[in-house]
Design a protein around this nucleic acid. Sequence first.
DNA 1: TATTGTTATACTCTATAACTATA
DNA 2: TATAGTTATAGAGTATAACAATA
Lengths: 168, 168
Amino acid sequence: MSDPTAGLNSEQLGAYFALMEVSSLLQYAVEEHLRADGDLSWVQFQILARLVDAPEGRLRMTDLADGVVYSRSGLTYQAGLLDKRGLITRSPSPEDERSVMVTVTDAGRELVARVLPGHVARVRGLLFEAMSDEDLAALGGVLARVRAHMRATPPRSAKRRAGRSGAG
Amino acid sequence: MSDPTAGLNSEQLGAYFALMEVSSLLQYAVEEHLRADGDLSWVQFQILARLVDAPEGRLRMTDLADGVVYSRSGLTYQAGLLDKRGLITRSPSPEDERSVMVTVTDAGRELVARVLPGHVARVRGLLFEAMSDEDLAALGGVLARVRAHMRATPPRSAKRRAGRSGAG
DNA sequence: TATTGTTATACTCTATAACTATA
DNA sequence: TATAGTTATAGAGTATAACAATA
């Protein structure tokens, strides 16, 4: 564990910078592919991927916002683009008339299916090719723990309606 | 290792998503702080931090671009902002008249010093607080290996003058 | 009153291509 | 010819605040 009053030691600094560089390079490579192969931004791909995984391919805007985007207007903007292209549809929820249900269309599912192989190929080639099975287990374990910690840690300056689960 | 023709298994998928979410949340939190505390973007902070660590506080534009930014014009833009604020200076290099040497000013050093404690505090609170010493060693080891692999792996569509070391 | 979502607006950042200048 | 950097420009994405509608 770490002393909350001290700076970061060199091992922590190294891990921090490595994390940021690795994720940056990975996201850049993946976005480049998504854009070239499916004309999708990272956020758009995440929205579609979540919907494809959801029961009946449907989620509320609020559920989508949570974890994908840091502001609601940002989600509305991206959903608008996907809607225009016929990859999703939006309709008012019958249960709660304030809510909007977002549904993947067949075209949306097809696009995800078309883009996915190249996507995972890039992730494998950049991220997992350099990893042993033990590396993978270790990385996955630590990151899962850290993610749970982050989700449970509210931002210092908690904003109202910030979109993130921890920020509301 | 992983079969280059197969998809990702669930452990790999989980590690991939966890990596992206962790780095996204961390970068968001850190950027929020940098903006509030020093009116700095993430890229601007990285530029200043690199200069502070460099001998005599100086680097060429090209050296700065490498690893910080994905296009040269992007670096020129950010450097222009830092220059306007008096945090860096730019002058033609005596050795190679094509090059521009970027130097941190005292004001730039002071700003980094002022912002750094809060910066590392956020990183510690979000990333390292949930980690044991063994976690840290494991994470650092894997990420260092992955980073080296990524740096050695040129993008499929190698662009000329893309700014990244691997992409040029 | 609080929540869900949209819209208007303004802004930041990025990338491409064209350009200058030096090696 | 190749490299270093800037500029013009255009586009993508974001966030804030104001808004309407429902709970």
